[in-house]
Design a protein around this nucleic acid. Structure first.
Length: 839
RNA sequence: GCGAGAGUGGUGAAACUGGCAGACACGCCAGACUUAGGAUCUGGUGCCGCAAGGCUUAAGGGUUCGAGUCCCUUCUCUCGCACCA
């Protein structure tokens, strides 16, 4: 008897797969379209911390699924690569002087080794790195296509600027006013920027979500982010007839508009402000300009504003209403101006109350005015609205919009919260934007045949912080001749954001070495779209929105075959860890806590009890699990199996050491089963039945990504056959086959040990015989008034009358009935009999 | 505040279209063998009760012969959004 030496077994088979190119994929034209699958992982950013346990969770899921599909006869594309441009490498370079390329390469090599140590069946010939010139050549190429299509523009405008990362950020990269990456407070700064017109695709990005098999929560996040709202734009005018356009979703409340509010940045503000209000207004505008978005929202409780001294005319009733400015109105949404209806909008109500402005009710619940202690924002029936009074809200909206349109005073309008995508970074380690600024010809694209525009070497990686990237300091790179007129010109020195490379990497995998095109059209047609995309939910509105946008642009250019890239998306849950919390909610690192009996935990330093909680893994809590350690101590197969056994893929779940021991024991048992002598005879009937049930369950569960229940079925099965002295081949080999996607190294080893030729991954998946899964007898539950009172072991498929008869004949049932007559008997074939008695 | 998802043993979790709640695993208990490093094997283990039996899927109500599952109300947690007019 030998020990389960997982380390040498895993090394052996990883070497075998590598030398035999077991997972190399080609575009075999004989395989029909419905037998091809593209299974994609979100590629990692190779940080210097190495892989964390969250990475192999998604990767294991897709690996099991891909191996499973392959065994079922599919041609499966399952590639891996690296999202390799980005700030951490650059920051490291600033600190140490190491070129980002050097540290990135080192990290990639480490990541690749780590990923390989799990035995994932990637086709490594298709590996891509977004920072390779051969790759970013095509990122630049696609950018130029976007530029040519008029979807990229340059603008100098106030933007989100992270003072710590020293670069501008897209809206999607700011969370609660903090930089999504480093959590510094984001400032407002005016910078020259390159911006992509993602808003031009807002409607399609929204509508096409319907076609996608994605989790509802991600779709909702994207919908909210795009933020479509239907309403009307209405033109108010000043006394001197200057028009002011506002956007409202409630044109039905026009009669209740008692003042207008402009954003402080609104261009009309300086023009309309009366001399006596100039000083106060200018001070307010200045203060608002210096506030960050966070400041503006943090102070949300107290409404502030200033009266401009000007008045506007309400187009529906000729009412003269004051015009205010306030920072609760955003210049970037709608027209930067609103009509305020305090009776029916909470914010306007607050503002009107604070500044003692009139509140006029124009909607009521039932057509009769009611007392308003707060804004009534629901739909209702119009009041105080002239000849529109009495109309229900939706009808009113339609009628008033038509009326306004007829008078040229407004029209139906759709607005989106989505803003254009700020696409320039004032940093070094990214794709150079391939444009040239010529004093004569303006913006001139770098000719396609000069791509890639290579990232030059620099002396200093440090961002200047002035809105210029480190590239600006390299005179002989910056100064060029204009591709158009040949005169002196300057290169664009901004680089692209990290998201650029990941917008299309799934297309490069299809044809990674193509130097004529970003990807061959035949390859795109062969594989696309991605059938299953697995990754973390943190990219819900960043990568996933940007990639959809680029894909749609490529689709419109006729360069790809579908208008959506990722047909099905699954977000794996986070792997968390236990930590401890004092009664005051402060956290205690795990190494400072002792466990006592019955689930109590004591902080060693104080001797006081602390509560066990589930927390994200973090260095400070000392609860980080390093996957390398796990592979070394328990083996890759145990790690794979454990991460899948913990619970459903989509939910987050805490790591426990005892949990991995459980699956390790299972693999130990399976390994020992391999020592039993094999027999060729007919296996026992019950075990054969269990085998077919197991094949069925593992097949269906794997297909549905329900790996935890598939594993539990394999545990049950292995437990049952463990009692045999000799192992019928017919029970053993099919089991190894269903185990193979889950614990591929062990399965290969045992497959070889029982005399089969490797690789098991190339062997067809076993089929189950439905007839063989059927039990001869079934347990019939006998209930009286819904309570289980007895169980009967009966032949299958008895008729209802027979079931009823059997149940009523049961001694226990007769005793409990005590002669009472059943009022009703419900029977469910092969399941139960429920006897209903009264009284 | 709004939106989405979720609340099942000591723990991670199962449960198909309403039909034996708690599969599988951890932990714990008992036994076997005896133990060199998280041993292994067998049995038990939702709660209350000596027992018969009763109770049990966040709480309460409803529909139903029958509800973890469907409907209503409330509570709690996680995530996302948050002056978007």
């Amino acid at each position: 008897m030998s020990d389960y030496d997982f380390t040498s077994i895993e090394k052996k088979w990883q070497a075998y797969w590598e030398t035999h190119q077991s997972f190399k994929v080609t575009e075999d034209p004989k395989v029909p379209k419905d037998k091809r699958r593209y299974v994609l992982d979100m590629f990692p950013y190779p940080s210097d911390a190495g892989l964390h346990v969250g990475h192999p969770e998604g990767y294991t899921a897709t690996d099991i699924y891909s191996r499973f599909l392959k065994m079922r006869g599919y041609n499966v594309l399952h590639p891996m690569g690296f999202d390799a441009f980005g700030l951490p490498a650059e920051n490291y370079a600033i600190k140490t002087g190491t070129h980002p390329r050097a540290s990135t390469e080192r990290n990639i090599n480490r990541f690749r080794d780590q990923i390989k140590s799990f035995g994932f069946g990637y086709d490594w010939d298709r590996e891509v790195s977004t920072c390779d010139a051969d790759y970013y050549k095509w990122t630049q190429w696609i950018f130029l296509k976007i530029f040519e299509k008029g979807l990229a523009y340059e603008a100098e405008m106030p933007i989100n600027f992270c003072p710590s990362c020293k670069t501008g950020l897209a809206n999607e990269e700011v969370k609660d006013g903090l930089c999504e990456r480093c959590h510094s407070r984001v400032e407002r700064r005016s910078l020259r920027q390159w911006i992509l017109k993602i808003t031009a695709y807002a409607e399609r990005l929204l509508a096409d979500l319907e076609k996608l098999d994605w989790s509802e929560s991600i779709k909702v996040m994207q919908r909210n982010w795009i933020g479509r709202s239907e309403g009307a734009s209405v033109i108010f005018s000043l006394e001197d007839k200057t028009p002011i356009e506002v956007f409202t979703t409630r044109p039905d409340t026009l009669f209740g508009a008692t003042y207008l509010v402009l954003a402080p940045e609104h261009p009309l503000v300086p023009k309309i402000t009366t001399p006596d209000r100039k000083k106060a207004v200018a001070a307010y505008v200045d203060a608002a300009g210096r506030k960050s978005d966070l400041d503006r929202t943090e102070l949300a409780k107290e409404k502030t504003g200033e009266f401009t001294g000007a008045y506007a005319i309400n187009p529906v009733n000729g009412g003269k209403i004051p015009i205010w400015i306030a920072d609760y109105v955003l210049i970037s949404y709608g027209t930067g101006a609103i009509m305020a209806v305090p009776a029916h909008d909470e914010r306007d109500f607050e503002f009107a109350t604070a500044f003692k402005l009139p509140i006029v009710q124009v909607v009521s619940r039932d057509g009769k005015p009611m007392e308003l202690k707060e804004a009534f924002t629901e739909d209702g029936v119009a009041v105080n609205s002239g000849r529109f009074s009495g109309l229900p809200t939706p009808e009113f909206k339609k009628r008033i919009t038509e009326w306004l349109a007829g008078k040229g005073l407004g029209k139906a309008t759709v607005n989106y919260k989505l803003r254009d995508w700020l696409f320039a970074r004032q940093r070094y380690w990214g794709e150079p934007i391939p444009l040239v600024h010529c004093p004569k010809d303006g913006i001139v694209p770098v000719p396609y045949d000069e791509l890639p525009l290579k990232l030059p070497d620099v002396k200093s990686f440090a961002p200047t912080g002035t809105g210029e990237s480190p590239l600006a300091a390299i005179a002989d790179w910056v100064n060029v001749t204009c591709p158009k007129c040949g005169g002196p010109a300057k290169r664009e020195t901004n680089t692209m954001p990290q998201w650029a490379g990941s917008c299309w990497y799934y297309l490069r995998y299809l044809d990674p070495k193509n130097d004529k095109a970003f990807s061959g059209r035949d390859k795109i047609d062969y594989w696309m779209p991605v059938d299953l995309y697995v990754g973390g939910a943190e990219h819900a509105v960043l990568h996933l929105l940007y990639a959809r946008f680029w894909h749609k642009v490529l689709f419109d250019l006729g360069l790809v075959n579908t208008d959506e890239p990722f047909r099905r998306l699954v977000n794996q849950g986070m792997i968390t860890s236990f930590a401890y919390e004092r009664p005051d909610k402060s956290l205690v690192p795990v190494d400072q806590v002792d466990e006592r009996e019955n689930e109590t935990f004591i902080e060693r330093a104080t001797g006081k009890p602390v509560a066990r909680i589930i927390a994200k893994m973090s260095k400070s809590l000392k609860n980080v699990i390093n996957p390398d350690d796990v592979v070394r101590e328990y083996g890759a197969d145990s790690m794979r199996l454990y991460e899948m056994f913990m619970g459903p893929l989509e939910v987050s779940k805490p790591w426990t050491v005892s949990g991995i021991l459980g699956v390790k024991r299972f693999l130990d048992r399976v390994y020992k089963l391999g020592d039993k002598p094999l027999a060729d005879g007919e296996p026992p009937r019950e075990l054969l039945r269990l085998l077919h049930k197991t094949i069925r369950k593992v097949t269906k569960d794997t297909d549905n990504l329900c790996f935890n229940t598939a594993i539990s079925q394999m545990m049950i099965y292995s437990g049952e056959i463990a009692g045999l002295d000799t192992l019928p081949r017919a029970l053993w080999e099919p089991f190894l086959l269903v185990l193979a996607p889950y614990a591929p190294h062990l399965a290969e080893e045992l497959w070889e040990k029982c005399g089969r030729k490797p690789s098991i991954s190339a062997h067809p998946w076993p089929a189950w015989d439905e007839a063989l899964t059927v039990d001869e007898t079934v347990t019939i539950v006998c209930q009286i008034n819904g309570k289980v009172r007895s169980r009967l072991e009966l032949p299958r498929d008895l008729k209802p009358a027979e079931l009823e008869k059997a149940a009523l004949a049961d001694a226990r049932i007769r005793e409990l009935l005590a002669g009472k007559k059943p009022a009703k008997v419900v029977t469910v074939p092969n399941k139960l009999v429920n006897i209903v008695v009264k009284g």
